[in-house]
Simulated assay, not measured.
Amino acid sequence: MTSDMTARALRLLSLLQTRREWSGADLAERLSVTVRTVRRDVDRLREMGYPVHSSRGHTGGYRLAPGADLPPLLLDDEEAVAIAVALHTAAGGLTGIEETALRALAKLQQVMPRRLRSQVTALETSLAGITWDSRGPRADPALLATLAVACRDHEILTFDYTTRNGTTTPRRVEPHHPVASGDLWYLLAHDSGKNDWRIFRLDRLTHPTTTGRRVPPRAIPGTDPARFVAHRISAAPTRYRAIATVHASADHILARTRGLATRIHPIDQTTCRVDASADHLTHVVQTLASLDTDYTLDADPHVLDHLRTTAHRALQATK
């Protein structure tokens, strides 16, 4: 009996960490118990030191708030700081676990005491030059955390956004999902002004402000946010056109490149077409260099001139 209560209390704690506020009825349904049992389990968590706040009324519920100390049985201060910094680093640099790191970071920050938050901020500042600046445009970890929480809570968000032609406009959106693509992060959201789904590069997004207004979750076209964003990226217009016909299978190229999945199109079992078009000539060169096999190229004159210049410099450097 005691083990059942302990397991249920841990499950309750986990639920409280995934949402800003839960109603007693919702928690009871998730735990398959009565509302009265939920109240008893909440009291038990409070006795263990977990700061669970409650509000009365029709819209009342339970929420896990920051406390004077970290909740017991989880982490000490040094461990909490170390994990928070590691999660920030993972969110910005380790392909494949970015969104998982953000979810974990949102849980940790929700219960972290203020004194530890200041330590984490200081460490992030001292590490920023190494962690972010050396890999091109990256998103601010604080911005990523803000967007992750807004997406989780389905809270309407406002911000200023600079388009690729340099125009800055205010936006009001229903945030859905942060998505990483190579060295860039995007926010997938439903734009209230455009009444349509849009993707926003986070390095062009400034002054994000949560409005306090929550809306029901809106279903995106399809079921995979990453696939939806990848399709939008590949369909977006680019400044420089470069199409390579590669003498290798699509699977071979896909296994040796990163971020090109939607730009690789098989022709037959031994040939594929790769769209290396981009807004910057250096990005075109980097994509073509990553192919690591023979290809023919159909490209704009500016692209061909830049490739010739780059190749000539490389040859001169080897003499």
Rank of each mutant, 00 (worst) to 15 (best):
160 D>L: 08
161 Y>N: 01
163 T>W: 00
163 T>G: 14
164 R>E: 03
167 T>G: 02
171 R>G: 01
173 V>F: 02
175 P>H: 07
176 H>S: 10
176 H>P: 08
178 P>I: 00
179 V>L: 09
180 A>I: 07
181 S>G: 08
182 G>Q: 03
182 G>F: 05
183 D>A: 09
184 L>V: 07
185 W>R: 10
186 Y>L: 01
188 L>E: 08
188 L>S: 09
188 L>H: 03
189 A>M: 01
190 H>G: 10
191 D>Q: 05
192 S>Q: 13
193 G>H: 02
194 K>F: 04
195 N>R: 14
195 N>I: 00
195 N>K: 15
196 D>N: 10
198 R>S: 06
199 I>P: 02
199 I>G: 03
199 I>S: 02
199 I>E: 07
201 R>F: 01
202 L>N: 07
206 T>H: 11
206 T>P: 11
208 P>Y: 08
212 G>N: 10
214 R>Y: 03
214 R>V: 07
214 R>P: 06
214 R>H: 12
216 P>V: 13
218 R>H: 07
218 R>N: 02
219 A>L: 13
225 P>W: 11
227 R>V: 11
228 F>G: 01
229 V>F: 09
230 A>E: 11
231 H>W: 09
232 R>G: 04
233 I>F: 04
233 I>W: 08
234 S>F: 06
235 A>T: 10
236 A>K: 11
239 R>N: 09
241 R>S: 09
242 A>S: 09
243 I>A: 08
244 A>D: 13
245 T>N: 10
247 H>M: 14
247 H>E: 14
248 A>H: 09
248 A>W: 04
250 A>L: 02
250 A>H: 04
250 A>R: 08
252 H>M: 03
257 T>Q: 04
257 T>W: 04
258 R>N: 11
258 R>Y: 07
259 G>V: 06
259 G>Q: 04
260 L>I: 08
261 A>F: 01
263 R>P: 02
264 I>F: 06
266 P>V: 08
266 P>K: 01
268 D>M: 09
268 D>C: 06
269 Q>H: 12
272 C>P: 03
272 C>G: 02
276 A>R: 06
276 A>L: 06
277 S>N: 02
278 A>E: 03
278 A>Q: 02
280 H>E: 15
282 T>P: 10
284 V>H: 06
285 V>N: 14
286 Q>G: 14
287 T>I: 15
287 T>E: 05
287 T>C: 11
288 L>M: 03
290 S>T: 08
291 L>H: 13
292 D>C: 13
292 D>G: 15
293 T>I: 03
294 D>T: 14
294 D>S: 13
294 D>G: 14
